[in-house]
Simulated assay, not measured.
Amino acid sequence: MLEIDRLSLRYGRHLALEDVSVRVLSGETVVILGANGAGKSSLLKAIAGLANPDSGSRVTLDGKSLLGLPPHEIPEAGIALVPEGRGVFGDLNVGENLLLGANPRRARATEAQRLDLVYELFPRLAERKRQIVRTMSGGEQQMVAIGRALMSNPRYLMLDEPSLGLAPIVVTELFAALKRVQQTGVALLLVEQNVSISLSISDRGYLMEAGRIVGSDTAEALKTDAAVQQAFLGGTAV
């Protein structure tokens, strides 16, 4: 289990996260819902070792603390992050980007099998493995980013706004691929503005506001929750 307990995080004097507690079970999909500025991205950065939480915060994987590990050691523990903005290497081709994802020691023995899986999940990448990534569409670059993360052989895949800036048809294709990722046993932790489609593939969700968790429930319950409908779904059930 990935467990975040009483996590607080500051940027200078600004308190970005306060006493946040979240858990993700093995193989589970969990979504974090909240408005811009609620602290969702800061939470993923803290888990990924890209931000330093306050003392007293806990981030553990199967009971072992992840806090204090350098960012490159987090993938070795089995956690991969697809950041907002994708973070792909634009001057490299698709295949080169993907192979960089297999750098962690835990991924090297199964590199060929992981590459086959990525190309199965995203056939378009197999067709364009020699294409320079900066010449690709936003949706294709997001597929590269997710594929590269999967190459690290993660147990937990974190995605920060994967549908941001993408056309609706591309979002549908992307989330269909994420459903196939679920079937491989990888747990997903999503931060996503498209509440309807993210709840459709999730087991549970947390509501975040002003750096705090203000509610949580099953995805099915959140779909029909009046407050969630009003805040995110235009007042209509999904």
Rank of each mutant, 00 (worst) to 15 (best):
M208I: 14
Q142P: 14
P123H: 03
R180G: 13
T184M: 10
A187M: 05
E192D: 12
S198I: 06
L117I: 07
E192L: 14
I201R: 02
L157A: 10
M143L: 09
R155F: 04
V191H: 01
L199M: 11
R124H: 08
P162Y: 05
V133C: 05
L150F: 06
G185W: 02
L125N: 06
T172V: 11
I132V: 15
E111V: 13
R130V: 04
S198Y: 01
S198R: 03
L164T: 07
M158W: 01
L188T: 10
M208C: 10
E111R: 15
Q141C: 12
M151C: 09
E111K: 14
V195D: 02
P168W: 08
L157P: 11
T172I: 06
A109G: 15
Q131T: 13
A107V: 09
R148K: 09
Q141P: 05
E120R: 15
K129G: 01
L117F: 07
Q182L: 12
M158Y: 02
L166P: 07
Y156H: 12
P168H: 04
D203L: 10
A167D: 07
E161M: 12
L174A: 07
I197R: 07
T135G: 13
T172H: 04
Y206F: 13
Q141F: 10
S196Y: 00
R128H: 10
S202W: 03
K129L: 05
F175T: 05
R180K: 15
I169P: 03
A149Q: 06
I169H: 11
I146T: 04
L115G: 13
Y156R: 00
V144W: 01
A109T: 02
Y156S: 00
E127L: 14
V133Q: 02
E173H: 13
L178D: 06
P168A: 11
G205V: 11
P168E: 09
V170K: 04
I132W: 01
A149I: 09
L174D: 04
Y119I: 07
R130Q: 13
L150I: 08
R148A: 12
D203C: 12
Q142K: 05
P154G: 06
G185F: 07
G138D: 14
E161Q: 09
L190R: 01
Y119E: 12
V181K: 00
R155I: 03
V195H: 06
K129N: 13
A187E: 00
G147Q: 03
A167Y: 02
R134E: 15
Q182N: 12
S163F: 03
Q141A: 10
S152E: 09
L207G: 02
S198A: 15
Q141I: 09
P123V: 04
I201K: 03
R108Y: 06
V133W: 00
V170E: 10
P162H: 06
L189D: 02
